[in-house]
């Protein structure tokens, strides 16, 4: 068969596929979602796609010409795209995942999680101890204006920290700031874990320095009753994002039997659940921090009790969530 006969015989079929593809594209806002096509067209799609793939192979083998090859390649690409598109947002799975799959993933990565905890907590304690011994050290980490505002915020004369109508603004601020820290910690872990280690240790140092300043001022009650409530979800979230970043870095250091590129892809896929769960934790922490931690109506003793309960809830979720009943 020569090219003219070939084209004459199949042009109608190509036009059909072309029409179907444009139709799919026009039909929905989520362009090309195959669920939006009429039943009949959806049933025809695999058949047309297979035919065009076959024709493309023939055109290449018989060298019918680059323009025809390009047209069929384009058609096949678009049909392939439509045929193999998946449902984009599995909402139910996402919720189930945060409740059950996420704690499982955390336990699977417990070594890295412990490492991340150590890299955050050890600098925090060292800085706290060193800051108590030598208050000048605090100033190297905590900017003066932050140190100054600590006294206003947590001292005995501290009033309600801000008018109630700005609670929501603070919620927005905490989400943006803390989730941003978590994402940066995760992403920079790609550089052999270095970035994740840096952000974890830096946050630890900063917290330790602030705690030392508070201790030297003697405002422990106001401060710890403030941080204990959201601290559970927030610090855990940062630690888990750090562990996820370390997973990325480790895959490049110790790729095992895979190539480094492949190991990175696998590790990224496996670390994403940790980041997702960490993000949910950080949003929960932002709600607590904005609407509860700074509340002046609630007595510090109640905040401490609720905060302790929240720490236990986080621990229970991560240690017990998603275990099968039989186990």
């Amino acid at each position: 068969m020569n090219r003219e006969l070939f084209e004459a015989r199949y042009a109608a079929l190509w036009d059909q596929l072309e029409a179907l593809l444009s139709d799919a594209r026009d039909r929905s806002r989520f362009r090309g979602a195959k669920g939006q096509l009429p039943e009949e067209a959806r049933a025809r799609l695999p058949e047309l796609h297979r035919a065009v793939c076959h024709h493309l192979a023939l055109v290449r083998q018989r060298r019918y010409g680059p323009d025809l090859e390009e047209r069929l390649n384009g058609l096949a690409l678009r049909a392939h795209d439509l045929l193999y598109s998946r449902r984009r947002i599995p909402l139910k799975e996402a919720i189930e995942f945060v409740a059950l799959g996420f704690p499982r993933r955390v336990r699977e990565e417990r070594l890295l999680v412990w490492l991340a905890i150590a890299v955050l907590v050890l600098p925090a304690f060292s800085m706290w101890a060193a800051g108590l011994a030598d208050p000048d050290l605090v100033a190297t980490i905590v900017p003066a204006e932050v140190a100054g505002s600590l006294a206003e915020s947590f001292g005995p004369q501290a009033q309600r920290l801000r008018p109630a109508r700005s609670d929501f603004a603070m919620f927005g601020f905490y989400v943006r700031n803390n989730a941003g820290i978590a994402f940066r910690t995760f992403a920079s872990g790609l550089f052999f874990g270095a970035g994740a280690l840096f952000f974890l240790a830096y946050n630890g140092l900063f917290f330790g320095a602030v705690a030392a300043e508070i201790s030297s001022l003697g405002y422990e009650e106001g401060f710890y009753s403030f941080v204990i409530g959201h601290g559970s979800f927030e610090i855990t979230g940062i630690i888990l994002a750090g562990a996820a970043g370390l997973r990325l870095g480790l895959s490049l250091l110790l790729p095992g039997e895979l190539s480094r590129a492949e190991a990175l892809r696998v590790a990224a896929r496996r670390s994403l659940p940790l980041v997702g769960g960490a993000t949910v934790y950080i949003v929960i922490a932002a709600v607590i921090e904005a609407f509860w931690s700074a509340s002046a109506i609630v007595a510090p003793s109640i905040k401490l009790a609720v905060g302790t309960a929240l720490w236990l809830a986080v621990a229970a979720h991560l240690l017990l969530g998603g275990r099968s009943r039989a186990a």
């Binding site: 392939h80 598109s85 947002i89 992403a187 970035g195 980041v275």
Partner: peptide, 21 residues
Amino acid sequence: GTPVTLPSSILRNLLTFADFL
């Protein structure tokens, strides 16, 4: 060659920060 999905898109865009460094 298949269309990008939610997890892949989130991954590549969170890691934009690593690309920035």
